[in-house]
């Protein structure tokens, strides 16, 4: 090569592809090939080694599976056989429902807590006790009270995504610079105008950071919640394929969980950049 003219990004992309190819090759090579039945000795046949064993599938199988699933993601062939798109759709629907309900409560409440030191001190002990509870610990109580597994899964999402939004909103609102509030005061802005034209934009980056953390946690939790409540969703799909001993589908759905989580995070990352400001 005569001269190094590639940019840093280009070189990083090439390295990424190399790592992927090496990884896939190592994986492929590490899977022992199963002997064909006619090559077995009598003893081996007697020991049952002739029957097909479940093993970690090689990447070529996973890629073939992905191609098959993604070329028809929305098929519906009964309760135990739905396309990956439908399953992910159910999961996203649950996450967004619980998440939006949490935001509708957490952001106004966070505003109140951030603006009022009394409210902050009064509510802080409850927040500190409730926040570290694993969201799945709520599941039995939710199932008993709500009497509906679908709604219980949504409740679990609600309860796990409320805390980062609540705390970040309160923190962001409390930290708005006194000078900017004084600008609002000297311009005779009312409480609502001050909240929407000064405090909200000033605290927006912190609030969106909280929302981004929340959506990440919600996506982590939905998989576990759906494994418990069953029926539909990507979490149920993973568990169902495990029961079917279809490890190819398990690996494929794990990858899909990662891709969707990345896209949700990227959406909030974009939002975060949109409201960011430099002082």
């Amino acid at each position: 090569m005569s001269r190094m003219t590639l940019s840093l990004n280009q070189r990083a992309a090439i390295l990424s592809v190399v790592i992927l190819l090496v990884g896939l090759l190592v994986w492929e090579a590490a899977i022992p090939a199963q002997k064909a039945a006619e090559n077995l000795t009598e003893y081996e046949r007697l020991m049952g080694l002739g029957s097909e064993r479940a093993g970690v599938p090689p990447p070529s199988d996973v890629i073939a599976k992905a191609w098959e699933q993604l070329s028809n993601p929305f098929y519906d062939a009964g309760p135990n056989d739905k396309g990956i798109g439908i399953q992910i759709g159910y999961s996203i629907y649950r996450v967004l429902t619980g998440y939006v309900m949490a935001a509708l409560i957490a952001i106004p409440l966070g505003f109140l807590i951030g603006m009022s030191p009394i409210a902050y001190r009064a509510l802080n002990p409850y927040i500190q006790v409730l926040r570290p509870i694993s969201p799945l610990a709520w599941m039995p109580l939710a199932l008993f009270i709500i009497q509906d597994s679908e709604a219980s899964a949504i409740f679990v999402i609600f309860i796990c995504s409320i805390w980062p939004m609540l705390l970040n909103t309160a923190f962001g609102v409390a930290g708005v610079r006194e000078d900017w509030v004084n600008v609002a005061r000297t311009h005779e802005l009312g409480h609502f105008r001050t909240a929407f034209t000064v405090i909200l934009p000033a605290a927006a980056p912190t609030i969106i950071t909280g929302m981004r953390i929340s959506i990440g946690i919600a996506w982590l939790v939905i998989v576990a919640a759906e494994m418990l409540v069953g029926g539909t969703g990507i979490g149920y799909y993973v568990w169902n394929e495990w029961n079917n001993l279809d490890l190819t589908s398990v690996i494929f759905s794990i990858l899909m969980i990662g891709v969707v989580g990345m896209m949700l995070d990227a959406a909030f990352g974009w939002l975060q950049r949109a409201v960011a400001y430099a002082e």
Binding site: D179, N182, V183, T186, H187, V198, A202, Y277
Partner: peptide
Amino acid sequence: GPSLDRGVVFQNYSLLPWLSALRNVTFG
């Protein structure tokens, strides 16, 4: 209490950093 009849220019400018210069003035 504060009033629009008494305008203030603060030492640290106190411009709202998420608004452009023009929007800071139209804000007032």
